[in-house]
Design a protein around this nucleic acid. Structure first.
Length: 385
RNA sequence: GUCCCCUUCGUCUAGUGGUUAGGACUCAGGAUUUUCAUUCCUGCAACAGGGGUUCGACUCCCCUAGGGGACGCCA
C-alpha cells in the first residue's frame, strides 16, 4: 500500500533455538542481508550522485534456498576478487547498485567506479523489441557492413567525441572515448523504415529479407559508405570478395584477389556501396555474359527513340571498332568522333550512347564503363540494333 | 502503487546563466560531373508545457505531461 513490496522481517530476529528448531523441521531456508535504514548514494560517472533509501530495499536474499548466491551477491564478490575497477552497464541496473554497495560496505571493500549508460530504443521510442531493433548484429555483418562502420554508428548512439567528428576509425574512437561523455537519455536505433515494415517482425527475417526495410539514407549507410571508400584497396577487395563469390554472378575461377579486371570493376563500383551485399545489384552489368538477351530498360528506350539515334549507333559501331588501345582516353575520343560524324553532341550524344550500350540511363562514367565491359561485348551490344 | 532516470531540429547530438542555440544524417534548392552516385555551396528545421530564482535562463529549483527502468530465491 503506497510502498514497494519489502520483506517483512518475519525471521529477522529469531533466537538460536528458534533457528535450530526450524532447520531441524526441514523447511527451506535462505540467507538474507540484514540492512539498516540509511541513505545510499550511488556515485555514478554518467548519472551523477543518485540517492536511494535502503528501507525501500529491505533485507534482500544473498543465498538462495538452493544454496546458490543470488546475482547481487555474486557479482560483488566476483568483481572484487577480479579487482574490477569500473562497472559499466545499462541504466537498467542502476537500481541494483544500492544493494551491491551495501554488500561492499559490509565487507569493507572498496567500491568500483560506477557508470550506468543509457539504453537504446527502437524507432517507436520503446526499448528494443522483438518486432524491430533487436535484430542480431550478425545480420548487419551478413549484409556486409564493415564492422568498424557499424561500430562507428553504435558509438555515436549516446556518446559523442569532444571534437564533434563523426566519421571515425576504430582507433580514433578508442582514443577519444570517455564514459563521462555518455548521455543519460536513451537514443534511437534508427535504421529501419517501420512504415514499410508495418505488421512485420523484422527480428525473424534473414539478412536478405531484412534489406528492403533498411532506410537507404540512414546515417549508418552514410558512415558505412565513407568507411568503404576510405579503405586501402587491398583491404576493400579482400572484404568484398566473399560477397562477390556468394553472388555467383562472377565465375568462381575469376574470384581472385589478383584478378586485375575484377579489381578494376570492384574499385569503380565502390563509391556506390553502403554495404557489400549491394554488389550483387551492380555486378550483372559486367558479368551478364549473354549479350543476345541484352535489353535496354524503359528510360533507355526513350533515348533510343530519338530521331538521331540510328545514325549515332552506326557511327559508334564504326568508330569504336577502330579504337586501339582500349583505354578511357581513346574511348572518349572515339565517342566524340562518332558524335561529330552523326551530328550529335552533348547530352544527346552521351546519353544515347549510354542507353544503347549500357541499357540504362545511370551508371559509371561512360568511358570507364566501356573499358571495363571490353571491346567485343560493346560491339556485340551495338550489333543488336 | 513506490522509487530512480530521461525530454534540444524528423534522427544522432554540441551546449554546464549572457550564443543569431552549433554540427552531422535526412529533406529542398543550386554548382560541378555532358547520366546516376560522389564532391561543394545554400536553405528548411529544435530547447515538452507551466510556474519560480535571477538584471538575465536551454542551462538552477518546483509542478505537470510524456517516455524509460527498477521494485524476484532471474541474471
Amino acid at each position: 500500500m503506497g510502498l514497494p513490496p519489502v520483506y517483512d522481517g518475519k525471521c529477522r530476529n529469531l533466537s538460536e533455538e528458534e533457528i535450530k528448531a526450524k532447520l531441524e523441521s526441514g523447511i527451506p531456508w535462505t540467507i538474507r542481508f540484514r540492512s539498516e535504514d540509511k541513505e545510499i548514494i550511488v556515485n555514478d560517472i554518467v548519472q551523477g550522485k543518485v540517492k536511494f533509501d535502503s528501507s525501500l530495499i529491505g533485507d534482500f536474499i544473498i543465498v538462495k534456498s538452493d544454496g546458490f548466491p543470488s546475482y547481487n551477491f555474486a557479482v560483488v564478490v566476483d568483481d572484487h576478487l577480479m579487482e574490477i575497477s569500473h562497472v559499466i552497464r545499462g541504466v537498467g541496473h542502476l537500481s541494483n547498485t544500492p544493494r551491491q554497495i551495501l554488500i561492499y560496505q559490509a565487507f569493507d571493500w572498496e567500491e568500483p567506479q560506477w557508470a550506468h549508460v543509457s539504453e537504446i530504443v527502437g524507432s517507436d521510442h520503446k526499448k528494443l523489441s522483438k518486432r524491430h531493433g533487436a535484430t542480431a548484429i550478425t545480420a548487419f555483418r551478413d549484409l556486409g557492413y564493415p564492422p568498424e562502420a557499424f561500430l562507428n554508428y553504435m558509438a555515436l548512439l549516446g556518446w559523442s567525441p569532444p571534437d564533434g567528428q563523426e566519421f571515425m576509425s576504430l582507433n580514433r574512437i578508442i582514443e577519444q572515448f570517455d564514459v563521462a561523455r555518455c548521455n543519460k537519455s536513451p537514443s534511437m536505433f534508427d535504421v529501419f523504415d517501420l512504415k514499410k515494415a508495418e505488421g512485420i517482425t523484422l527480428n525473424e527475417l534473414s539478412p536478405r529479407e531484412l534489406e528492403p526495410y533498411l532506410y537507404e539514407k540512414s546515417k549508418l549507410n552514410w558512415l558505412s559508405n565513407s568507411h568503404i571508400r576510405a579503405k586501402q584497396e587491398d583491404d576493400y577487395i579482400r572484404e568484398i570478395l566473399p560477397f562477390v563469390k556468394a553472388s555467383k554472378i562472377v565465375p568462381e575461377s575469376e574470384c581472385k584477389e589478383d584478378n586485375d579486371h575484377l579489381r578494376s570493376v570492384l574499385l569503380s563500383l565502390r563509391v556506390y556501396l553502403d554495404y557489400y551485399l549491394q554488389i550483387e545489384r551492380l555486378l550483372p552489368d559486367f558479368y551478364e555474359t549473354d549479350d543476345s538477351k541484352f535489353q535496354p530498360d524503359s528510360s533507355a528506350q526513350e533515348w533510343l527513340k530519338k530521331d538521331f539515334a540510328k545514325n549515332l549507333i552506326e557511327a559508334l559501331k564504326e568508330n569504336l571498332e577502330k579504337v586501339d588501345p582500349w583505354e578511357e582516353a581513346s574511348l572518349k575520343e572515339a565517342l566524340k568522333q562518332a558524335g561529330k560524324q552523326a551530328g550529335v553532341k552533348g547530352k544527346d550524344l552521351f546519353m544515347t550512347a549510354r542507353a544503347a550500350i549500357t541499357g540504362k540511363t545511370a551508371g559509371l562514367e561512360l568511358p570507364v564503363f566501356l573499358k571495363l565491359l571490353g571491346k567485343e561485348r560493346v560491339l556485340n551490344r551495338l550489333k543488336t540494333y
